[in-house]
């Protein structure tokens, strides 16, 4: 048998096998799976997906390399944040970033980063994606760590000498860590 002929036979066998597999698969799908789409999605590499991924979960596993100090954060705050958030995170047009030391049960509870936020990782995530509001996604990782350090220091959560990086930020225990109760049954 010539190689050409043999290839044809092998090809035919493969076709039949694939056909059988597909038709059995189709039966199974019809019974159990939701309606199938036309399958037009384009597969991307894990690297591409990672480049799009700007979210930081509470365990901090997606935090980038880099670090920042309270002093560096204060400098940046004066340059990039104070116009909206006021001196030391209080006052002016935007939200209070500091305060609520009297707790959350009184007549005028203040929900701030220090008094209310359950995770410090959220601060990195949010500043990176949304702040400064007039130029989101413009800060470097070092700058964001520094701003986290400064805001956590102003809230009395970290010490003035503390340096924030992927490991230290994920390890910060926020005062209101246990303050949330999941309501929807799907969320439990």
């Amino acid at each position: 048998m010539s190689t050409d002929k043999r290839n044809i036979w092998v090809g035919a066998f493969v076709l039949v096998a694939v056909g059988l597999f597909l038709s059995r698969g189709a039966d199974r799908i019809a019974e159990t799976a939701p309606p199938r789409g036309p399958g037009l999605g384009h597969q991307v590499s894990l690297e591409t997906a990672a480049a799009w991924d700007i979210s930081i979960p509470p365990d901090g596993h997606n935090l980038p390399p880099g670090s920042g100090t309270v002093a560096a954060g204060e400098k940046l705050y004066l340059a990039r944040c104070i116009n909206c958030h006021g001196k030391r995170g209080r006052g002016l047009s935007a939200e209070e970033l500091v305060g609520g030391v009297d707790g959350l049960t009184g007549d005028y509870p203040e929900k701030t980063v220090g008094s209310y936020w359950p995770y410090a990782t959220t601060l990195f995530d949010y500043i990176r994606r949304a702040m400064p509001q007039d130029a989101p996604l413009s800060l470097t990782s070092d700058e964001i760590y520094a701003l986290c350090a400064y805001l956590l220091f102003l809230n009395g959560v970290v010490a003035e000498a503390d340096v924030m990086n992927a490991a230290t930020l994920s390890a910060v225990e926020m005062p209101n860590r246990e303050g949330f109760v999941r309501i929807n049954e799907m969320a439990r």
Partner: peptide
Amino acid sequence: VAEPMMSRDETSKYTELVPDGTARQFTFV
């Protein structure tokens, strides 16, 4: 993912502080 992201708009906001000082989270409906 396996766990909620705990992003700003599901922790700082869109949660409801109740009198005992805890907050209702993932109130969805």
